[in-house]
Simulated assay, not measured.
Amino acid sequence: MAGAEARLDAAGVSLWLTDWKVDGGGAWSGRRVMALVGGVHAGHLDVYVHPDGQAVQVAGIEVEPGYQGRGLASVMMDALYAAHPTAWINHGRRGTEGTLWWDRYREPAPQRNVHNRPPAEWARYFDPLTVAAERAHNAYLDRHAGVHGHREAVYRYGEPMAEEARRYAPLFREPEAWGPDPGAEELYGGVRLVLPPGLYRLVPAPRRGAGGRARILLEHLGHGSLPHHSAWNTTRHAAFADLHHEQVLEPGPAGPVLHLTFRLLPLAGAEPPVHEVKATWVKYVHSPGIEVRLAGMSWRSLERPWITHGAAFDSRGGRGDRAGVPAGRHHDQQHRQGPRLR
């Protein structure tokens, strides 16, 4: 065998359910099922998840050209159903390729697909008028492509549904958008670093102590700005996941890579700059500066990512504790050189 088949059989497939940082969604959280073959990105499935976890909106599914025709799309969709075993699923509007794939796909829980059930059951989560339009669009493409499209499972396949949709539309309510408060909560952000080999060898050296190694990293980074495009998360785990996600999609230059995260505390009485609050993270928009207290650092090497090193900083003051972070400034190589605190 050659090409994708050989790579699949030799390396196997792994799936990773992670955050999907996207500007849309409102109170719905972005989530991504990522397929990796030998550690290389082979495809992904993007969805929005309702705050109560009982509804999922499919945003898109994509398989890289070298891995198509191997069932990866079906594997990712099965994983989505398994990850949300009681949630309503809305697959939305399909295109031509999606129509042909859906005809071959065997849905593990068709009774949880909103296209297969009356709006009285799920209208609190999805707009019945929108779903009716999606259903009509998909029925048209099924007929145009000459495929079955599992029509026996679809609720009132091909029939006009505008009147019923209007009757149940008042049940639909968008959840209230909420998220972390940067003026009151600690946040976590991160950056990928490509370090000189000599400095990289110090990262796991326990004899220096975590605090000493953290200070060495800070001296190397210097003073300046953090990347303005970073997502600031409510957990350290999410910050590390962002960095690994970036590493998979954009491996970057060869060399010893370090994933570094910061734990930031708001300064008492300081007004947060302009920002957008998402379901589980914060994004700063063209901010002239963010007053924070650097409370700690954690880091992982790509060679041994299962080991996390970290150090806390003295909250009473001292160099590196209080930092004005101009999130609106950014340089092309910032993700390689790291954040610069002043």
Rank of each mutant, 00 (worst) to 15 (best):
L8E: 07
D9S: 09
A10I: 02
W16E: 15
T18I: 12
D23I: 04
G24L: 04
G26P: 02
G30E: 03
V40Q: 13
H44L: 05
L45D: 09
D46Q: 06
Y48K: 07
V49A: 08
H50C: 05
P51M: 10
G53R: 01
V56D: 01
E62H: 05
G66M: 05
G69Q: 13
A73W: 03
A73K: 02
V75R: 13
M76N: 03
A79Q: 11
L80H: 12
A82D: 14
A83K: 04
N90D: 15
N90F: 08
R93K: 12
G95Y: 04
G95K: 07
E97M: 15
E97S: 10
T99R: 12
R106N: 08
E107L: 04
P108Q: 10
A109P: 01
H115S: 07
P118Y: 12
A120Y: 03
R124Y: 01
A132T: 09
A132E: 14
A133G: 07
E134S: 07
A136T: 12
H137R: 13
N138I: 11
N138K: 05
H148S: 11
G149M: 06
E152S: 14
V154D: 03
A162Q: 13
R167P: 00
E174P: 04
E176D: 13
P182L: 02
G183S: 10
G183L: 09
L187D: 07
G189Q: 02
G190R: 03
R192T: 12
L193T: 05
L195M: 06
P197V: 14
V203K: 01
A205M: 11
P206N: 05
G209Q: 09
G209V: 09
A210I: 05
A214T: 10
I216N: 00
I216E: 15
L217Y: 07
G222R: 05
S225R: 06
L226I: 08
L226Q: 00
P227Q: 09
P227T: 01
S230T: 08
N233H: 15
N233L: 12
T234E: 11
T234V: 15
F240K: 03
A241F: 00
D242K: 07
L249V: 09
L249P: 00
F262S: 02
R263N: 01
L264D: 01
L264P: 00
L267K: 13
G269S: 06
E271F: 00
P272D: 08
P272Y: 02
V277K: 04
T280I: 08
T280P: 00
H286E: 14
S287L: 06
I290L: 09
V292P: 00
V292M: 14
R293I: 01
M297Y: 04
W299Y: 03
L302V: 13
R304L: 13
P305C: 09
G310R: 11
A311L: 08
A312M: 04
F313H: 11
D314C: 11
G317R: 07
R322L: 15
R322Y: 13
P326T: 08
A327I: 01
G328Y: 12
R329F: 12
R336W: 14
R340T: 15
